[in-house]
Amino acid sequence: MKSLLKNDYGILVALMFVLAAPPILVKFGAMNSYYISILIFMALNTMIAVGLNLLVCHAGQISLGHAAFYGIGAYTSAILTVVYGCPLWVDVIAAMVLSGVIAYLVGAPTLKLKGHYLAVATMGLGIIAFIVMNEWHSVTEGPSGIVGIPRLKIFETVMRTDMQVYYLYWAIALIVILVAINILNSRVGRALRALHGSETAAAAMGVNVNSYKLKVFVISAVFAGLAGSLYAHYMTFISPPSFGLQFSIMLVLMIIVGGAETIWGALIGAVLITSMRAFLGEALGAYKDYDVIVYGLVMMVVMIFIPAGLAGGVSIIARKLKRGSAQPEEIGA
């Protein structure tokens, strides 16, 4: 246990070093600055995927509507800053709070549902949220979107360049990962994994199953709302199609492809899916029109051959290698 703890935090530190590399590479001309913007989107997707990983992979609840919270976060920030001149960062907090409150109100009745029913209910939430963004013209400006969302500031420095945004957003993403790790390595995290394993047994051990499901749903919504708010501040423009069902499904893809076993699956999934979105067309060269098909094929291959996801697949291989090298893993019955 201790070693695992040490390892998760160790990985986090290692990740910090890895993330320090791109700016250096850009500085020395070994890497194009364009990639920094892709890394920014990776940071945003990582924040949402980490929350969804807690919800789906560790607590065993599904959500096909998380784009709703991403959208709620983005629209909260956009409306507060553009229409009401709300101070920067206050709107980010407000976006997180509102996402959490709505998750609480929606989650209280729906999380009592299980399996497919929960999937459909959360999908309904996503659809309703999209309709509200699209149709509530007086507040959201409807399908034409909100322009002129200000960039974030730290003290008096406006986050104008991609490099500044990169540092800021990845710092926040690392904090989100840290929060998730801390939750998982605590009484709360054990309760979540317990109710995933067996709701009855968890309840028999005193875990308030409904309350914990609601808690993790709210946490994941808060992460998504945070990412949405930061997305709005980075793009400076938002409109409803960014927050539709398609994005919800992409989020679920991220955590499935990444792997359910650890929180790092979320990071791997976010990095992989974002890269594929950005680079697949380029990589295919003359066949770039077929990128959507290749994208689908890659998903299928991952699911068929590595159902545990990439992170899971790697740890399975690792385990096998390790078993080969003498340490007995399982006790014979």
Binding site: S3, G259, I268, I316, L321
Partner: peptide, 19 residues
């Protein structure tokens, strides 16, 4: 969970590799 140690480590290595 000891069984995870190496796996987690490799996962990270992989994520780094993907990056």
């Amino acid at each position: 969970m000891k069984r995870n140690r190496f796996g987690v480590f490799c996962s990270t290595a992989l994520s780094v590799a993907i990056l």
